[in-house]
Design a protein around this nucleic acid. Structure first.
Lengths: 215, 215
DNA sequence: CCCGTATGAATGAAAG
DNA sequence: CTTTCATTCATACGGG
């Protein structure tokens, strides 16, 4: 592998990023935060005016399935975790990346059921998959004993999000920032909005050292 | 644990994170982008109706920064096999139309790497897809003799132990639903904002914990 | 310029 | 638990 790419962190399942890249992402998120904040404010304002004018339209929770507008209904056979559910799941997974016991599964299921249809099997499967996939990541660096470099192509299986674009003929997409992620716990919408309070000045999520990076 | 910041100590100013975390952050950012997008749509809609209000302070959704940021992170590139690679892959596939084992994948990857950037995941995916595709093709050709309603081949097997039903369109289908990218049509702003303003409806334990950690 | 198709990638579910 | 299957999503690409 070449040099410029920081994407391969030695096959250890970790990525390294520079300050520049961090900064870039930070700004990116800051921008989002700011924009969201402004949009929220604007909308509140506009809504207020509308309501005042007596032309209040939709009800808060009346037109939920906006997506139904796009005839995407009636075909989903398999369960798809909703964002809220995903967050809960991820959160729990972080706490203990062991498969929850039977009772625990029930609990979780009940909790998740408040955010949408779900079954215990779904939860069970999710944890199985989650665990299996994250585990793959930690192997990989054990293919051979006498390996000279712990680099080259020692990705594991399908848990890598490789971004092999360097040698692509056409455009080399930006080598940076493309796949930079920080450690951050699951952030709900509330949190996001909460963080909007201090837009450009703080990037709380990834600064947390107390948070276990390995989950 | 050690990954936390040890890289930082080197004065290099870099952080290390796992793939999991990277993926998670990526999703989070994507969600963020989605939220912005939805807010923007809502705002546009409202603005159209409230045109008399005038454009008080400019429209954030016109900000090029937004789009650039969104596109930067919200999109990922996908690997495209080069002709040479494809040839090898096809060749191997002919020999054994079974999914190669881990070691085999590594070999193949190494081989293909000489013709361009590639990862084991790419190879793995390719075989998976290849197999699935050719399988489906076959069953399509040999559907059934009786011209009665064959329910499109093997759908009957879908009936297993669990069946959480389709995702119900209504209820708490969130705007940032299935996919993290903005494909959703219009969304009720109230619903969107409701997520952050209605603690009573859905504020699981984890959010509080999270908040603590974050704050 | 939009639209349909081919295909890489993601992931829930099931098999082993 | 690990590996595989099936389905779906999203994007690149070629045609109208």
């Amino acid at each position: 592998m070449e040099e410029g790419n920081f994407q391969n962190g030695g096959g250890l399942g970790v990525k390294v990023m520079t300050d520049e890249q961090m900064e870039m992402l930070r700004k990116q998120i800051a921008v989002y935060a700011t924009i969201c904040e402004q949009l929220v404010e604007m909308h509140k304002d506009l809504s207020a005016q509308q309501e005042f004018a007596g032309m209040r339209l939709g009800n808060p929770y009346c037109d939920p399935l906006l997506s139904s507008a796009v005839h995407k209904i009636g075909s989903r056979q398999r369960w798809t975790p909703k964002p809220a559910q995903l967050q809960i799941l991820e959160q729990i997974f972080e706490q203990c990346n062991a498969t929850p016991g039977r009772q625990k599964i029930k609990d979780i299921t009940r909790e998740l059921a408040q955010h949408g249809q779900i079954s215990e099997t779904n939860v069970y499967n999710w944890f199985q998959n989650r665990r299996a996939r994250s585990k793959r990541k930690q192997s990989a660096v054990v293919p051979n004993n006498g390996e000279s470099e712990m680099e080259t192509e020692n990705e594991s299986f399908r848990e890598k999000k490789t971004r092999p674009e360097d040698s692509q003929p056409d455009e080399n997409t930006t080598p940076l920032a493309d796949q930079m992620y920080f450690n951050s716990p699951d952030i709900g919408f509330d949190q996001l909005v909460g963080k909007m309070e201090s837009p450009g000045s703080c990037i709380p999520y990834w600064q947390m050292e107390q948070y276990d990076l390995l989950g």
